[in-house]
Deep mutational scan, measured.
Amino acid sequence: NKFNKELGWATWEIFNLPNLNGVQVKAFIDSLRDDPSQSANLLAEAKKLNDAQA
C-alpha cells in the first residue's frame, strides 16, 4: 500500500544521510515505524538535521 512504499523510501533515504549518527538514524526509523503516515515530515526533519550537521 501507499504507506509501505513511502515508509520504505523514507527509511532508505534516512539510512543514506551521511551526517546522521547511528542513534539519530535509529530514532528517525523508530518514529517512521510508529507512524508511517508521517514519513514525509520525518524525512524532511532528518534532512534538516543532516544539513545542520554537515
Rank of each mutant, 00 (worst) to 15 (best):
residue 1 N to G: 14
residue 2 K to N: 13
residue 2 K to D: 15
residue 2 K to S: 13
residue 2 K to T: 07
residue 2 K to G: 13
residue 2 K to Q: 13
residue 3 F to M: 13
residue 3 F to K: 12
residue 4 N to E: 15
residue 4 N to I: 10
residue 4 N to T: 10
residue 4 N to L: 12
residue 4 N to V: 10
residue 4 N to G: 12
residue 4 N to R: 05
residue 5 K to Q: 15
residue 5 K to M: 09
residue 6 E to G: 06
residue 7 L to G: 03
residue 7 L to R: 02
residue 8 G to P: 05
residue 8 G to Q: 14
residue 8 G to M: 15
residue 8 G to H: 13
residue 9 W to H: 10
residue 10 A to E: 08
residue 10 A to P: 07
residue 10 A to W: 12
residue 10 A to N: 03
residue 11 T to A: 15
residue 11 T to C: 15
residue 11 T to W: 14
residue 12 W to K: 12
residue 13 E to L: 12
residue 13 E to R: 08
residue 14 I to D: 08
residue 14 I to T: 02
residue 14 I to A: 02
residue 14 I to N: 02
residue 14 I to H: 01
residue 15 F to D: 05
residue 16 N to H: 12
residue 16 N to Q: 10
residue 16 N to L: 08
residue 16 N to T: 08
residue 17 L to Q: 02
residue 17 L to H: 01
residue 17 L to P: 00
residue 18 P to N: 05
residue 18 P to K: 06
residue 19 N to L: 03
residue 19 N to R: 01
residue 19 N to Q: 03
residue 19 N to W: 13
residue 20 L to I: 02
residue 20 L to R: 00
residue 20 L to M: 01
residue 20 L to Y: 00
residue 22 G to Y: 13
residue 22 G to T: 10
residue 22 G to W: 14
residue 22 G to C: 15
residue 22 G to P: 14
residue 22 G to A: 13
residue 23 V to W: 14
residue 23 V to I: 11
residue 23 V to N: 12
residue 23 V to H: 13
residue 23 V to L: 12
residue 23 V to E: 11
residue 24 Q to T: 03
residue 24 Q to R: 00
residue 25 V to A: 04
residue 25 V to P: 00
residue 26 K to L: 11
residue 27 A to E: 08
residue 27 A to Q: 10
residue 27 A to R: 09
residue 28 F to T: 00
residue 28 F to K: 00
residue 28 F to I: 05
residue 28 F to W: 02
residue 29 I to V: 06
residue 29 I to D: 01
residue 29 I to F: 06
residue 29 I to R: 02
residue 30 D to F: 03
residue 30 D to E: 10
residue 30 D to C: 12
residue 31 S to C: 15
residue 31 S to G: 09
residue 31 S to Y: 09
residue 32 L to M: 10
residue 32 L to N: 00
residue 33 R to E: 08
residue 34 D to Q: 12
residue 34 D to I: 10
residue 34 D to Y: 11
residue 34 D to N: 13
residue 35 D to M: 04
residue 35 D to I: 03
residue 35 D to V: 04
residue 36 P to N: 02
residue 36 P to A: 03
residue 36 P to S: 03
residue 36 P to M: 05
residue 37 S to L: 07
residue 37 S to Y: 06
residue 38 Q to W: 03
residue 38 Q to Y: 04
residue 38 Q to P: 01
residue 38 Q to N: 14
residue 38 Q to K: 08
residue 38 Q to I: 06
residue 39 S to V: 14
residue 39 S to M: 13
residue 39 S to G: 08
residue 39 S to D: 03
residue 39 S to W: 15
residue 40 A to M: 11
residue 40 A to V: 11
residue 40 A to T: 07
residue 40 A to H: 11
residue 41 N to H: 10
residue 41 N to G: 07
residue 41 N to T: 12
residue 41 N to K: 13
residue 41 N to S: 11
residue 42 L to A: 03
residue 42 L to C: 05
residue 42 L to F: 05
residue 42 L to M: 04
residue 42 L to P: 00
residue 42 L to K: 08
residue 43 L to C: 03
residue 43 L to G: 01
residue 43 L to I: 09
residue 44 A to W: 09
residue 45 E to C: 12
residue 45 E to G: 04
residue 45 E to I: 10
residue 45 E to Y: 06
residue 46 A to L: 03
residue 46 A to R: 00
residue 46 A to N: 00
residue 47 K to G: 02
residue 47 K to V: 08
residue 47 K to P: 01
residue 48 K to V: 05
residue 48 K to D: 04
residue 48 K to T: 05
residue 48 K to W: 05
residue 49 L to S: 02
residue 49 L to Q: 04
residue 49 L to I: 08
residue 49 L to D: 01
residue 50 N to S: 09
residue 50 N to D: 03
residue 50 N to A: 02
residue 51 D to C: 11
residue 51 D to Q: 08
residue 51 D to F: 08
residue 51 D to A: 11
residue 51 D to I: 09
residue 53 Q to F: 04
residue 53 Q to W: 03
residue 53 Q to G: 04
residue 54 A to E: 06
residue 54 A to S: 09
residue 54 A to I: 06
